[in-house]
């Protein structure tokens, strides 16, 4: 299964193209939207795109269990990132009364 057929019926290239498009949409969200919470969701989307590519490669290498361990660690780091990132957004909102990243351009109070 190669070419267009792989994209339509789930060959390796199909999964990789989905992962790439998912990553691009996440990157566009981070670059184009100004709300910090939406930018955060874009970062999560990019992490997910990497996971899709990782597990697609694992399946086409005969169901590698190492990839699954890697995926577990990525999920643990994503959970840490969510906790600390959201705490930072709440802290910013307390000091500046905004969740707009443009209005948080300076480190001073």
């Amino acid at each position: 299964m190669t070419g267009m057929d792989a994209i339509l019926h789930g060959g390796l290239q199909g999964y990789l193209v989905v992962a790439l498009l998912l990553f691009s949409i996440g990157l566009a969200t981070v670059l184009l939207r100004r709300t910090l919470l939406l930018q955060f969701m874009g970062v999560e989307l990019m992490l997910n795109a990497a996971n899709v590519a990782l597990l697609a490669f694992a399946r086409f290498r005969g169901g590698d269990a190492q990839a699954m361990v890697f995926y577990l660690f990525i999920i643990a780091v994503a959970a840490c990132e969510a906790a600390v990132g959201l705490a930072l957004v709440i802290g910013l909102f307390r000091h500046r009364d905004t969740t707009d990243s443009d209005r948080a351009a300076s480190l001073k109070q």
Binding site: R34, L37, A78, A79, A83, L86, D100
Partner: peptide, 28 residues
């Protein structure tokens, strides 16, 4: 379990807590 169950619930919770439903108007 982790993404839809934990992370997205946390994000939605923070959105509602900060009451930032709409994107603010751009300064520039």
């Amino acid at each position: 379990i982790v993404y839809t169950g934990a992370i997205m619930v946390l994000v939605l919770f923070v959105i509602m807590m900060l009451n930032s439903h709409e994107e603010e108007k751009a300064q520039t």
